[in-house]
Design a protein around this nucleic acid. Structure first.
Length: 425
RNA sequence: GGAGAGAUGGCCGAGUAGGUCGAAGGCGCUCGCCUGCUAAGCGAGUAUACUGGGAAACCGGUAUCGAGGGUUCGAAUCCCUCUCUCUCCGCCA
């Protein structure tokens, strides 16, 4: 959510910056609404001040029968207040629901552009492996080894669900543990295991609602949603809190499954693990001082990249342009891992700075000094990493001509020492 | 699922025959005094949001005692709805 006063005072600038992300938001209606609201508020509060004063005076008089005139007068005043309050409630609701649909302002540092073709690659790491055979896509590798069963996932549930078996299941679990261990012991994140369902308020705070309900799974019977990312429950840990400046920065990491309806992506990435309704992810979330959020984003990004470096998987980092940045973010870097089976880079992590956008929706503030006024924190998050896609990258990058897959060295302790996944394992 | 109890400021905790209650008291915290050090002691201060004025310091108004409605000139206190927490029973990993 944007600062209503900032919009009020920088109407034109806000419109321009929203336009740069391709969001045509009309602010003139909002301006009128806001002005009307403040007029009514003034009137209502003046009347309330009068009522409070007179009521206090009445309370001092023993014999209320002497006060019938003023009581009657205040009855009229109260009726007027009621009407004004009613109207204000409506206006407040209109203002709020409008603000909830306005995306964040992109950072001035983000490259200008209209779509992903304008994103800028800023670095690459690792050598693309030179294989002396035609690399297979991971779904063929996984099926041949018997460790991924797409048919069975479809039978049990439906399209975009997959059953992992044997070494495949263990590899996924090894990756989760490896990532969590790395972030907690080397990068100083606190491990969180949150609920996998959240309420409407939490979804609104991080920005999934009200606009993107179609992307979510909603439960029947209770107003809960399956989380599309751990960002939602973990960011909401500090909803409606005033943190002490001494606690900042706060860094959490969490493994959760993620559930996405993938509405509107019919026919896209239908084969394999790339686009599932349920996938595992280890997430990184930070709460930081506004002055630190740029540098903290660099750190978070580096923490996510470290996973790929240790796994020895080649990747590149992309700076998302204004037109491609998500609704709540002001700056985003994607990490894309190399997939030889598909001969392309695929997103495996998205690391974003949200500025105070989520903090304002969620009312997450901090007090820098004991006596200083509370201000909004900045929130950041990024995948560290998407586990299913990491498994995909391992299968495709570490495949051998005979169809077996070499387990990256750092994962072997998590795999009971297993060095190679072959059909007999 | 059945029965009951509860929700007050950073924390603990008063306050229900409606008014002087943004709210006693204690703890904590901040500043000052005192003290050889520590502890104790003394004094002052210690919520947030919106809104009006002001360059600002700041001053004024309104709201907030789980949330939302209602009754009333006036609600932490009365009424209704909802949410959450706890206890007992049932069921259950």
């Amino acid at each position: 959510m944007l600062d209503i006063r900032y919009i009020r005072e920088n109407l034109h600038d806000v419109e321009l910056r929203l336009k740069s992300r391709g969001a045509g938001v009309e602010l003139s209606g909002f301006h009128a609404l806001d002005a009307r609201r403040r007029d009514l508020l003034q009137e209502a509060e003046t009347l309330k001040a009068l009522r409070n004063r007179v009521s206090d005076e009445i309370s001092l008089v023993r014999d209320k029968s002497l006060e019938q005139d003023r009581i009657a007068e205040m009855r009229t005043v109260s009726q007027r207040i009621k009407v004004l309050d009613e109207e204000l409630r409506t206006l407040d609701e209109e203002v709020r629901s409008f603000l909830l649909t306005v995306p964040n302002l992109p950072s001035p540092d983000a490259p200008l552009g209209v779509s992903e073709v304008d994103n800028q690659e800023i670095r690459r790491w690792g050598d693309i492996p030179a294989l002396e055979f035609v690399p297979k896509p991971h779904w063929e590798i996984g099926e041949n080894l018997g460790i991924l069963d797409f048919e069975c996932g479809a039978k049990i549930t439906g399209a975009r669900f997959t059953l992992y078996r044997g070494a495949g299941a263990r590899l996924e679990r090894a990756l989760i543990n490896f990532m969590l261990d790395l972030h907690t012991t080397r990068h100083n994140y606190i491990e969180i295991l949150p609920p996998f369902m959240v309420n409407r308020e939490s979804m609104t705070a991080t920005g999934q609602l009200p606009k993107f309900s179609a992307d979510l799974f909603h439960l029947e019977g209770v107003d809960y949603f399956l989380i599309p990312t751990a960002e939602v429950p973990v960011t909401n840990i500090h909803r409606s809190e005033i943190l002490s400046g001494k606690e900042l920065p706060i860094a959490y990491t969490a493994y959760t499954p993620c559930f996405r309806s993938e509405a509107g992506s019919y026919g896209k990435d239908t084969r394999g693990l790339i686009r599932q309704h349920q996938f595992n992810k280890v997430e990184l979330v930070k709460f930081v001082r506004p002055s630190d959020s740029d540098i903290e984003l660099e750190r978070l990004l580096d923490n996510a990249e470290e996973v790929l470096r240790l796994l020895e998987l080649p990747y590149r980092v992309v700076d998302l342009c204004t037109g491609d940045i998500g609704f709540s973010a002001c700056r985003t870097f994607d990490i894309e891992v190399w997939l030889p089976g598909q001969n392309c880079f695929r997103e495996i992590s998205s690391c974003s700075n949200f500025g105070d956008f989520q903090a304002r929706r969620a009312s997450i503030r901090f007090r820098d000094e004991e006596k200083s006024k509370p201000e909004f924190v900045h929130t950041l998050n990024g995948s560290g990493l998407a586990v299913g896609r990491t498994l995909v990258a391992i299968l495709e990058n570490c495949q051998k001509a005979d169809g077996s897959v070499t387990v990256p060295e750092v994962l072997r302790p998590y795999m009971g020492g297993l060095e190679t996944i072959s059909s007999i394992s």
